[in-house]
């Protein structure tokens, strides 16, 4: 078996991975409520926020993923959203806006001190980032999806590098050593995700269109 066949087999497995392999929305909802409740309670908040690593790389990704998985709008809401944001552009702005907001060290700091900002985090991250990402993914075309993935990857890389290079302690709640550790972890995540993305885009088995389908779609503009 040659290397190309192996790569194609692995990427086919990746390609066949469907959203229905995710946990059911009801399970995700229960988990999200649990994570939010833990995040509100002093003991839970202390556990998540006591280190920058658990705060940025455990709690926030957990809220984003659960927000995205449990998002399943009712038909009425779905049609309303389709009417106001058919291309996913508003969702894209919300997604990038909230991402940028929670990347600012000042806001991360405030979330550890101010209960109201902590609550804002626990609500805005699953809805503003997670749900918006799901809607955006559902509505947008392939190019916009790629742009979202690309920009997310670039932001993680830049943030990781900035955390490592900055001689200043960016968050007053976390020491510089921890900031640099998170920076290193972000660069590791960036490296792994870049490898997966390159592997998938090079070897992924996409649906082939035959010439007649292509000609038909060309003629339809």
């Amino acid at each position: 078996m040659d290397i190309l066949t192996l790569c194609n087999m692995a990427s086919r497995r990746l390609n066949n991975w469907q959203l229905n392999e995710l946990p059911a929305p009801s399970t995700a909802r229960a988990l999200l409520v649990f994570v939010i409740m833990v995040g509100i309670t002093p003991a839970g908040a202390m556990w998540f926020e006591s280190s920058m690593t658990t705060h940025m790389l455990v709690q926030l990704p957990l809220l984003i993923v659960l927000g995205a998985v449990c998002y399943q709008p009712k038909a009425q809401l779905n049609s309303f959203l389709t009417r106001i944001d058919p291309l996913g552009a508003i969702a894209f702005i919300c997604y990038t806006g909230w991402m940028l907001f929670w990347m600012l060290p000042l806001n991360l700091d405030l979330a550890t001190i101010e209960p109201s900002v902590r609550l804002l985090k626990l609500i805005s991250v699953p809805i503003g980032i997670g749900c918006c990402f799901r809607w955006l993914w559902h509505q947008s075309n392939a190019v916009l999806k790629c742009v979202v993935v690309f920009e997310t990857w670039a932001s993680v890389t830049r943030l990781g590098w900035l955390y490592i290079e900055s001689p200043l302690q960016l968050c007053s709640s976390y020491l510089i050593g921890e900031q640099q550790r998170v920076g290193t972890l972000l660069l590791v995540i960036s490296g792994i995700s870049a490898t997966v993305a390159v592997f998938y885009s090079l070897f992924g088995s996409f649906n082939k269109k035959n010439d007649s389908t292509l000609a038909k779609s060309t003629s339809n503009g």
């Binding site: 190309l4 190019v143 690309f150 885009s201 090079l202 992924g204 649906n207 082939k208």
Partner: peptide, 30 residues
């Protein structure tokens, strides 16, 4: 980037993926 992504998606849709566009299945495969 926008144009390259569009080109990459179009090649992948017709030929399977970028390595097939590059002809590696003919170079290394059977």
């Amino acid at each position: 980037l926008l144009v390259y992504l569009d080109m990459a998606i179009a090649i992948s849709k017709k030929y399977g993926n970028l390595t097939r566009g590059l002809g590696l299945h003919m170079l290394f495969g059977r």
